[in-house]
Design a protein around this nucleic acid. Structure first.
Length: 270
DNA sequence: TTTGTCAATTAGCTGA
DNA sequence: TCAGCTAATTGACAAA
């Protein structure tokens, strides 16, 4: 797409493009600072049951090469007497780094096999409660990343494992980015359309001015008339320009300079 | 080397 | 049944 067009036909005409920014385009979500007292802290009942309550005992284990942590937790929980606890479900979730430790791996594999034989372990999916999600959302609005201490505190508040909080924030950032990418794409699309329209309009205007110049030799004899004919208004800054502005040869000038819109800074250099 | 983050991906759950 | 959402995993990469 051409943003501006230099005169290449010896007419001394110069085109400038402008673009009106879309008002009110905010980047991403509004960040709201929340003041939360300890009284607002939510005491949450763990509602997630990866558990191996009686009705899940018969379910089949996920693929052997599936989530190691889940399998381990599932099998571990099977030996526990309080299967409804989310905390207990995740209290020993292994990180990938931990998982990479070979001795640990060997131990896990062996226990996994035996657990599979003992009971089918279905990889149940955790669903956060509304309260948990709300609190996580609130925290995310405050800050999109957490340091280890904050993570631990939030995890305690939510009765979740720090790793779960970390994963939630990770996924949340990914969703935000995806959404923002979509917004940016739409903005750029509109910007492109607008610039194309403007370009067409200015091309038309340029052609008219060229035709005027050719069809009016009178103007050549009366420079004042030529200058008047060249008067035009910059659509961006609303300045009326004349042939005496910004041109070396005193020819026609439509705009003193081009106005390029940057959709990310929302500014037009005028 | 460790640690944190990201992108890509997998897979369970849910509502239409 | 299937698409969409999302919790969770994996591997790569950068910074300290």
């Amino acid at each position: 797409m051409s943003m501006g067009q230099e005169d290449t036909c010896g007419t001394n005409l110069v085109l400038g493009l402008s673009y009106d920014s879309h008002s009110g385009h905010g980047h991403g979500e509004t960040i709201v600072k929340l003041e939360r007292s300890s009284a607002n802290m939510i005491s949450l009942e763990p509602s997630l049951t990866l558990g191996l309550s009686s009705d899940t005992h018969g379910s089949t284990m996920a693929k052997v090469d599936g989530s190691k942590a889940w399998m381990e937790e599932g099998s571990r929980l099977a030996r526990q007497s309080s299967p409804q606890s989310t905390v207990s479900m995740f209290s020993h979730t292994k990180t990938k780094r931990e998982n990479s430790m070979k001795s640990d791996e060997t131990e896990r594999v062996s226990s996994r096999v035996s657990d599979e034989e003992e009971e089918g372990n279905a990889r149940k999916k955790l669903r956060l409660t509304k309260e948990q999600s709300a609190l996580l959302e609130d925290k995310f609005k405050e800050q999109s990343t957490l340091n280890p201490k904050e993570k631990q505190n939030l995890a305690n508040q939510l009765n979740l494992q720090p790793r779960q909080v970390e994963v939630w924030f990770q996924n949340r950032r990914a969703r935000t980015k995806l959404k923002q990418t979509e917004v940016d794409r739409e903005t750029l699309k509109r910007c492109c359309e607008s610039l194309s329209d403007e370009n067409r309009r200015l091309q038309k205007e340029l052609n008219e001015l060229r035709a005027l110049k050719i069809a009016s030799p009178l103007c050549m004899q009366f420079p004042a008339a030529a200058a008047a004919a060249a008067l035009t208004m910059c659509p961006s800054c609303k300045r009326i320009t004349t042939g005496s502005e910004g041109s070396k040869g005193g020819g026609f000038v439509v705009a003193p300079r081009a106005h390029f819109f940057n959709p990310f800074t929302h500014s037009a250099a005028c």
